[in-house]
Write a protein that binds this DNA or RNA. Structure first.
Length: 877
RNA sequence: GGGCGGUUAGCUCAGCGGGAGAGCACUACCUUGACAUGGUAGGGGCCAUAGGUUCGAUCCCUAUACCGCCCACCA
C-alpha cells in the first residue's frame, strides 16, 4: 500500500542510484538507433547551481529523457568549465587566509594548489545537477582543462596561428587593474554612474587666450598629447595649428582639427589622451601624436607624470589634479552628469582602464562570415527564431577577439620565444625547439580566455582532434539549450570554431530559454540577497515539483519569475498524481500485459482511451516543437482535469457495482491509462513517476520507466461517440451541482431528478449512466418523464429540460433570478449572432464553415432561450 | 543613437484572426472510503492608448505612452 503522500527525500536518492546503476544514461549502447546529442553549457567549476542552471538543465533533461524513451541513442554530455578568473581568485583568497600568496609561491606551486582545490571542492555543482535528476552520461564528464580538451585547445591555437588568424598586437585593451589582466570587449559592462564634467582652461602658447575643454577624467590630462576641435567649427578655426600649454606639466601640445571632436558636446574642444581612451588612440594614430602611458598595471600613476602625482591611485590623482587646477585658476566650472563607465562585468565594481599592452588577438572576421551564412542557410536554427537577429547583429560588427589573459590558471599559450624574441608557435615545447633549431626557449606566460576552450566544447568533449567514433556519431549535436546572455560569449563562438575546424555547424537547433527572475521580477544577485536556491526548493518540495514549475514557466517571453509559491503548487500536483496512483492501487487496477486499448467495449473506457490518445499526441507534438510550457500544461490538464477530476470519479460507482465484466475492463483500462500518464510525465517529473512505476506493479516491471518506451498514439473505437456521450454525462452532473449550490441544497441531501423533453438517445444515456450520475450529482433517483413536477428547479441540457423537484425547499425568487440570468446570457448571444448574420458583408465574404458555425450557435442559443423562457413560465404555475 | 521584448482577472502568466483562459489569491459550502498538499460551486477582465487593414481584431499593420533588455557612444 502506498503512503498517503509522496516523500521526495526518501525516494529521490534511491531512484537516482537505480538509474545510475542501470546505466540508463550511458550513450552508445543502442546499436542501430538514431543518435540524439546535447552538450550541456558547462557551469563554472567554482559554481553553485542557481535557478537559471536548474531551468537550463531541466529543459535539456526533458529532451534527453523524451528522446531516450523514443528509442534514440542519447548522449547528454556533461562537464564543467575551469573558469580562469573565478577559480584563480578563490584559490588566491584561500591562500591569503593562510598568509600565503600566488606571487610568493610561484606559478608551478600555485597551479598545484588550484588542482588540489579542484579535486577537493571543485564541481559541487555536478552533485547538485544530480539532485535535479539530470540524466546526463556522467561517465563521460569532462573538464575544460582535461588533458584531451587541452590538446584540442593547443591544436586550435596552433592552426589558427599558422593560418595567420592569431597574431600579437600592441593596442589599447580593457585592462582590469585589480587582476592586472586584459579582458575582452564582451567582459566590459558599462554602468551608469553619477560623475562630473570638469571644464578646464588650457592656456594657448604665446598668448593670453585659453582653450577650454570638458572632461570626465581630469587625471588623464597628464597624458594628453593634443587638443582636438572639429574642422568645421568656426569658433576654433583660428586656433588650429597653435600649441596649448598642458597645465600641471607645462608640456606643449598641438591644437588639431579632427572629425572626432563633436561641436555639440562640451565646449567643442576635446583633450586627446591616446594612451587612455579608445577614440583618442585612433585620433593619435591619424595625427601621429605621441602616446604617453601614465598608469601602472595596478592602476596607480607611473613615473611619467610630474612627481607629486606619482603612485597615486586614479581616484586620488583625480582629486589632486582638480584641486591643483582650481588653485591655478584653470578650472572653469564643474557640471554634475550621469555617464556610463566601463566596469568589469563579473564584479561590476572594478573600473576598467583602456591600457596599452601587447596581447594575442584572434581575427574572427572570416570565421564570423561563415557562422552568419550557416544560420542564414538554416543549417542551424534559433528557437525562438528572433534570437537569430541578436546573433547576426553581433557577428556582423565583430572585432578582433583579445584572447590572452595575464592569469596563471588556464590554457597557457603555446608560444615560445628565443633570446631574440622570435616567436615559435607549436603544440609542444620540443616542436618549438625543433623549429628554433635548438637552444633554450622561454614560453609565453599568458593563458587563454576561458571562452576560448568553451568555444570548442561540442567537439573537444567528443575526442577531437582524434577521429573518435563518438565524434562521428554525435557531431553535429542535435540541440543546444542555453540562455540569451551567452549568445555572444558562447553560442556564436562555438559556431565559428565548429564550422572552421569540423566543417559543419556544432548544433542543428539552438533553444534560447527565458531568464529567471525572483518573485518580484528582480534580477537575482548575491548582493541583493534575492537568489532563490534551487536546492532549498528541492529539499522543501522535491525535484519533480521544481522541474515541473520550471517547465511550465518556460514560455516564449523573456523572463520568468520563480519562487516558493509556484513550486508549492506543483508539489501539490505531484501529491495529486501520487494519490491517483493510490486510488488505482486500492481498486485493484493492475497493468494487464498485452492490454489492447482499442478493444475496450465500455463507453467510459473508450472515452478515456480517446482522451489519453489526445494527450499523448499533444504532449509529443509540443516537446517536438520545443514548446516546453505547452507540453507541461497539456499533460497537467489531462492528468488533473480529465483523469483525476472526471475519470476517476466516474469509475467509483463502477467499482462499487456488481457488473463484474465492466469492473474488470475498467480496472485494466485504468491501469493502462495510469501507465501512460507515468510515461507522459516522466520527462518532467522523473522521480515520482519512476517510483510509482515500480510501486504500482504487482509483478516487477520489465524495465525501469526511464528505459521504457514513449507511448504511442492509439486509435480508439467510436471515440467521437463515446466522447460526446461522456461530455453529456459530465454536463448533466455539472448542471445539477450548479443548481444545488445556488439553491443551497445541503451537500449531503439526495434529491430526485426528472428529465423532460429528452430524446430517445438522451433517455438511453441517462439510463446507461444512472449510477455514475446519481453518485456524482448526489441524486436519489433520475428518470425521464413527460412532465415537470411543480416546485422544481430547472436547467436546460441540449434538447431536454432537467428538473430537480425541491418541493417546499425551493426558493422561487432565487430560482427565477438564476434562470433569468441564464436567459439574459442566451439572449445576448442571440443578439450578437443576429448582428453578425444580418451583416451582408459578413454573409457574402466569410467562409462557409464559419457561417454554418455561427448559424448553428445561434440556433443553439435560440433553443436554450426558448426552454429557459418556458422554465421561467412554469415557475409561476 | 541603433535594435529587441513586454503591456490580457487583485498577483504571476498562457493564448495570438471568428464564443476571453490557467495557477495563486478571493467568496460560499463540504472531514463524500485516493488526495484538506483535497473537493464542489462562484465572483472578478472596454485583452495599454489612438489610428489602419478585414465581413470580423486581444490576435495582423502603423504610431504613441509606459516598463524592461541588448548593442554602440557620451567631452
Amino acid at each position: 500500500m502506498l503512503d498517503k503522500t509522496f516523500n521526495p527525500k526518501d525516494v529521490e536518492q534511491r531512484i537516482a542510484a537505480q538509474w545510475e546503476a542501470s546505466g540508463a544514461f550511458k550513450c552508445g549502447n543502442r546499436p542501430g538507433a538514431a543518435p540524439f546529442s546535447i552538450v550541456i553549457p558547462p557551469p563554472n567549476v567554482t559554481g553553485r547551481l542557481h535557478i537559471g542552471h536548474a531551468l537550463n538543465n531541466t529543459l535539456q533533461d526533458i529532451l534527453a529523457r523524451f528522446e531516450r524513451m523514443r528509442g534514440k541513442d542519447v548522449l547528454w554530455q556533461p562537464g564543467t568549465d575551469h573558469a580562469g578568473i573565478a577559480t584563480q581568485l578563490i584559490v588566491e583568497r584561500q591562500l591569503a587566509e593562510r598568509q600565503m600568496s600566488r606571487i610568493g609561491m610561484g606559478r608551478e606551486k600555485f597551479l598545484e594548489e588550484v588542482w588540489k582545490w579542484k579535486a577537493e571542492s571543485g564541481g559541487a555543482i555536478v552533485e547538485q545537477q544530480h539532485r535535479l535528476g539530470a540524466s546526463a552520461d556522467w561517465s563521460r564528464e569532462r573538464f575544460t582543462m582535461d588533458e584531451g580538451l587541452s590538446r584540442a585547445v593547443t591544436k586550435v591555437f596552433v592552426e589558427l596561428y599558422s593560418q595567420g588568424l592569431i597574431y600579437k598586437d600592441k593596442r589599447l585593451v580593457n585592462w582590469d587593474p585589480r587582476l592586472q589582466t586584459a579582458v575582452s570587449d564582451l567582459e566590459v559592462e558599462n554602468i551608469e554612474i553619477k560623475g562630473h564634467l570638469w571644464y578646464i582652461r588650457y592656456p594657448i602658447d604665446d598668448s593670453d587666450q585659453f582653450i577650454t575643454i570638458a572632461t570626465t577624467r581630469p587625471e588623464t590630462l597628464l597624458g594628453d598629447t593634443a587638443v582636438a576641435v572639429h574642422p568645421g567649427d568656426q569658433r576654433y578655426t583660428a586656433l588650429v595649428g597653435k600649441m596649448a600649454v598642458l597645465p600641471l606639466t607645462g608640456r606643449l601640445i598641438p591644437i588639431i582639427a579632427d572629425e572626432h571632436s563633436d561641436p555639440e558636446k562640451g565646449t567643442g574642444a576635446v583633450k586627446i589622451t591616446p594612451g587612455h581612451d579608445f577614440n583618442d588612440f585612433e585620433v593619435g594614430k591619424r595625427h601621429k601624436l605621441p602616446l604617453i602611458n601614465i598608469i601602472n598595471k595596478d592602476g596607480t600613476l607611473n613615473n611619467d607624470v610630474p612627481a607629486p602625482y606619482r603612485g597615486l591611485t586614479r581616484e586620488a590623482a583625480r582629486k589632486k589634479v582638480v584641486a591643483d587646477l582650481e588653485a591655478l585658476g584653470l578650472l572653469d566650472h564643474v557640471e554634475p552628469i550621469t555617464h556610463a563607465v566601463p566596469h568589469d562585468e563579473k564584479t561590476k565594481t572594478v573600473v576598467l582602464e583602456p591600457y596599452l599592452t601587447e596581447q594575442w588577438y584572434l581575427n574572427v572576421q572570416p570565421l564570423a562570415d561563415k557562422a552568419i551564412a550557416a544560420v542564414e542557410k538554416g543549417e542551424t536554427r534559433f528557437v525562438p527564431e528572433n534570437w537569430a537577429n541578436v546573433y547576426f547583429g553581433w557577428l556582423r560588427n565583430i572585432r578582433p577577439w583579445c584572447i590572452s589573459r595575464q592569469l596563471w590558471w588556464g590554457h597557457q599559450i603555446p608560444v615560445w620565444y628565443d633570446a631574440d624574441g622570435k616567436v615559435y608557435c607549436a603544440e609542444t615545447e620540443d616542436d618549438a625547439v625543433k623549429q628554433a633549431g635548438g637552444g633554450s626557449l622561454r614560453r609565453d606566460e599568458d593563458v587563454l580566455d576561458t571562452w576560448f576552450s568553451s568555444a570548442l566544447w561540442p567537439f573537444s568533449t567528443l575526442g577531437w582532434p582524434d577521429k573518435t567514433p563518438e565524434l562521428a556519431r554525435y557531431y553535429p549535436t542535435s540541440v543546444l539549450v542555453t540562455g540569451f546572455d551567452i549568445i555572444f560569449f558562447w553560442v556564436a563562438r562555438m559556431m565559428m570554431m565548429g564550422i572552421h575546424f569540423l566543417g559543419e555547424v556544432p548544433f542543428r537547433t539552438v533553444v534560447i530559454h527565458n531568464r529567471v527572475l525572483d518573485e518580484q521580477g528582480a534580477k537575482m544577485s548575491k548582493t541583493k540577497g534575492n537568489v532563490v536556491d534551487p536546492i532549498t526548493l528541492i529539499d522543501e518540495f522535491g525535484a519533480d515539483a521544481l522541474r515541473f514549475t520550471l517547465a511550465l514557466a518556460a514560455g516564449q517571453s523573456r523572463d520568468m519569475r520563480i519562487g516558493p509559491t509556484r513550486v508549492e503548487t506543483n508539489r501539490n500536483f505531484a501529491t495529486k498524481l501520487w494519490n491517483t496512483a493510490r486510488f488505482c492501487e486500492m481498486n485493484g487496477c493492475i497493468t494487464v500485459p498485452g492490454f489492447d486499448p482499442t478493444a475496450v467495449t465500455e463507453t467510459v473506457s473508450k472515452w478515456i482511451v480517446s482522451e489519453t490518445e489526445y494527450a499523448i499526441g499533444s504532449v509529443t507534438n509540443m516537446i517536438e516543437e520545443l514548446r516546453f510550457n505547452e507540453a507541461a500544461s497539456n499533460a497537467y490538464h489531462f492528468v488533473y482535469d480529465i483523469f483525476c477530476d472526471w475519470y476517476v470519479e466516474i469509475t467509483k460507482p463502477i467499482f462499487q457495482s456488481i457488473n463484474e465484466a465492466a469492473k474488470a475492463e475498467t480496472r485494466a483500462t485504468t491501469a493502462w491509462a495510469r501507465d501512460q500518464i507515468l510515461k507522459l510525465l516522466h520527462p518532467f517529473m522523473p522521480f515520482i513517476t519512476e517510483e510509482l512505476w515500480a510501486a504500482t506493479a504487482v509483478t516487477p516491471r520489465e524495465t525501469l520507466l526511464v528505459l521504457s518506451d514513449w507511448p504511442k498514439r492509439v486509435a480508439p473505437p467510436d471515440a467521437e461517440m463515446a466522447s460526446a456521450e461522456m461530455m453529456w454525462v459530465i454536463d448533466l452532473i455539472k448542471g445539477v451541482r450548479s443548481v444545488r449550490a445556488e439553491m443551497n441544497v445541503p451537500a449531503g441531501a439526495k434529491i430526485p431528478l426528472v428529465m423532460t423533453g429528452a430524446s430517445e438517445g438522451s433517455a438511453a444515456r441517462l439510463a446507461r449512466h444512472i449510477d455514475v450520475i446519481a453518485t456524482l450529482a448526489r441524486l436519489s433517483s433520475a428518470e425521464a418523464a413527460p412532465t415537470i413536477p411543480t416546485g422544481s428547479a430547472q436547467f436546460v441540457l441540449e434538447e431536454a429540460v432537467v428538473a430537480l423537484p425541491l418541493g417546499d425547499v425551493i426558493d422561487f425568487a432565487r430560482e427565477r433570478a438564476r434562470l433569468e440570468k441564464d436567459l439574459k446570457k442566451a439572449q445576448d448571444e442571440i443578439t450578437r449572432f443576429d448582428a453578425k448574420l444580418s451583416n451582408e458583408q459578413f454573409v457574402s465574404k466569410a467562409p462557409e464553415e464559419v457561417l454554418t458555425e455561427q448559424r448553428e450557435k445561434r440556433a443553439e442559443a435560440q433553443a436554450l432561450a426558448l426552454r429557459l423562457t418556458d422554465a421561467i413560465g412554469r415557475l409561476a404555475e
